[in-house]
Design a protein around this nucleic acid. Sequence first.
RNA 1: CGCGGGGUGGAGGAGCGGUACCUCGUCAGGCUCAUAAUCUGAAGACCCCGGUUCGAAUCCGGGCCCCGCAACCA
Length: 497
Amino acid sequence: MKEKKDRQANHSKNHSTKKTYITTAIPYVNAAPHIGFALEIIQADVLNRYYKSKDQDTYFVTGTDENSLKNVLKAEEEGISTKELVNKYSKNFLELKEILNIDYDDFIRTTEPRHIKNVEKFWKACEKDIYKKSYKGLYCVGCEEFKLEKDLEEGKCPEHLNKALEVVEEENYFFKLSKYQKQLKELIETETLKIVPKGRKNDVLGFIDQGLEDFSISRSVERAKGWGIPVPGDPSQIIYVWFDALVNYISALGYAEESALYKDFWADSDKILHCIGKGITRFHAIYWPAMLLSAGVRLPTHELVHGYITADGQKMSKSLGNVVEPKAVVEKYGTDAVRYFLLKAIPPTKDGDFNKGYFEEVYNADLANGLGNAVARVAKMAENSGFEFEVDTKGFEKVWEADWTQDLQSHMESFRLDLAIQEVWKMLSQLDKHINEHEPWAVKDEEKLREILDFEVNLIRRAAVVLKPFIPDTSRKIQAQFFKKDIKAQKPLFPRI
RNA sequence: CGCGGGGUGGAGGAGCGGUACCUCGUCAGGCUCAUAAUCUGAAGACCCCGGUUCGAAUCCGGGCCCCGCAACCA
């Protein structure tokens, strides 16, 4: 808390620095963290660390979405209160910070009073576009949700064939999404709100062209089982979980009290980046911007949409029991190995596959034989030489102004984290080639050897510095080993498996 | 005619109008600083049928086959 106040004070003083705000989606807590969410939070973390390393002022927020009906059902299953359940399960997400080494600034839970206060203010700010309407539909008691005709099998819910559907009619609040159709289309077309990749942008535009309908933003207390944030002024209605959840992005900054943090990182921010998965693009590229337009709040600037990860080529699902959990994978292979795999082997905005064989292939090829081995061989030769290697810290302070980082940076600008990493491995490949061609072990001439080793040591130092956003712990280890005069061989960074 | 992504050497992926690239695997050779590592070289590929073009993996039309999504699911 104290730290946060310091940050606030710090931020408001420093107006010339570029401000960047980064968020992840906030997952439901009723299931264990998914490897797909690990991908998302790692992508966000890398971008955050990268911007920070360029001396930008950043703020990075993640959290959990806890007002879902699913939590009520799960709690009933476990025989505990919903409150107890969300407290218990949100810990699984909180601990990702350590497991994945995520450097976020705040973690927001939608059951926190500070969030609720923000949602209430935001709802009121949208009030001119909110109206009451009666909604009639087929309700499945088993799923606890309305079904559409086209989802039915012989007039019944495919998942609960033994239960008859009820015709339920109730009054809900609706949001005038239709009103913002034209404006949204223009904002997205002109990339005032930039959706990455292009394919996702086109999807959204196509959806808008089909015509936007107003959507329900509340449900009855009965249907919500009393769980969630009540509609201001109407305790018989609970705010629809998505309307509430999206507001987290500004409630974490203090929208309600118009804090300095909110001004810096939202109202006057240079860049607002939402990292999300493809399944929730519509909420972030259509509903959320429309809600912000209605409330008179500025819009985010970027939506970075990642794809989905399959397991052994199949969609991960609970029923198949093939869901990969980040915690288990990290326990087996280590944090940086998992970060590396997700960043390099999964294209940032496309679907990718996660399987043991592929993971271990990438691990051995890139981390053990590639980076780890290169570090080991240069360290050993440096040690054998008995030379002292001057540390030129100045040369590394302005690393992002150097020619050799330009390709990497342009890939970071287009969010191609995989290609950015590849640039580092190109350097390592040059290094291996350089060693084989110059055969330092056979060089008798001290001056010549000195020249060769200086070059090689420097390449390792460069790699270590630019790898920091991607695999921070490994970068730290290499820097500890190489940013000193007497470089000594050490244990392998990534033992072969 | 619901929407979208995709079919590239043995495997997994890039490329998306002009000598087809990367990783793993295979074969031959080199080196020994290194984690049986690393370097050099070799064999081997653009789903099918038409079309546009001087030229197509890349664009257009048709076909076959996979895989997602179809408003609340990372």
